Amino acid sequence: MTAPAPRIGDQLASTACGTRVIIVRAPAGGVPEISCGGSPMVPASSTGGAPPPPPGGGEAATLIGKRYVDATGTLELLCTSSGAGELSCGGVPMTLKAAKPLPASD
């Protein structure tokens, strides 16, 4: 039996680091495998708690409060807990979503 496809609002947790995300936007045709730090992400409810941070106190690769998008821009994740792993979708690294510029107030 395969796991159900992630939907908007689902919370996912990394099995490799402390990263947790919420799916903000997802393509209609289903979502490719979402992974962090090279390991597939799992529903946050299935983890007993966030794994401890890696030794050495390295900088977080995923930043809390930031949005990440896939290469096509159809999948968007909101990071709710920082971690050392890099987010990827279908094996392709996700990028930090750029902020929209505010309109000029002339």
Rank of each mutant, 00 (worst) to 15 (best):
M1V: 11
M1C: 07
T2C: 12
T2F: 15
T2E: 15
P4W: 05
P4Q: 09
A5V: 12
A5D: 15
P6G: 00
P6S: 02
P6K: 00
R7H: 10
R7L: 09
I8L: 10
G9K: 11
G9V: 08
Q11C: 05
T15I: 07
T15Y: 05
A16W: 07
G18W: 02
T19K: 00
V21G: 00
V21Q: 00
V21I: 03
I22G: 00
I22D: 00
I23G: 01
I23H: 04
I23C: 12
I23E: 04
V24E: 03
V24Q: 01
V24G: 01
A26N: 04
P27W: 07
P27A: 11
A28P: 01
A28G: 03
G29M: 13
G29F: 14
G29H: 10
G30W: 10
I34W: 00
C36V: 08
G38Q: 13
S39C: 11
P40K: 06
M41Y: 00
M41T: 00
V42E: 01
P43D: 08
S45Y: 03
S45A: 09
G48A: 13
G49E: 12
G49H: 12
A50F: 01
P51E: 11
P52S: 08
P52C: 01
P52Y: 07
G56T: 12
G56E: 13
G56I: 14
G57Q: 09
G57N: 12
A61F: 07
A61W: 08
T62R: 02
L63I: 13
L63T: 06
G65A: 10
G65I: 09
G65L: 08
G65Y: 06
G65V: 07
G65E: 09
R67T: 05
Y68C: 06
Y68S: 04
Y68N: 02
V69D: 02
D70Q: 02
A71P: 04
T72D: 15
T72R: 15
T72Y: 13
T72A: 15
G73S: 10
G73A: 08
E76L: 10
E76F: 04
E76C: 10
L77D: 02
L77T: 02
L78F: 09
L78T: 03
C79A: 03
T80C: 08
T80I: 09
T80L: 06
T80V: 05
S81T: 06
S81I: 01
E86M: 09
L87D: 02
C89M: 06
C89F: 01
G91C: 12
G91M: 11
V92Q: 06
P93W: 12
M94G: 03
M94I: 10
M94N: 10
T95P: 03
L96G: 08
K100A: 14
K100N: 11
P101G: 13
L102C: 11
P103N: 05
A104K: 15
A104N: 15
A104P: 14
S105V: 11
S105K: 15
D106W: 09
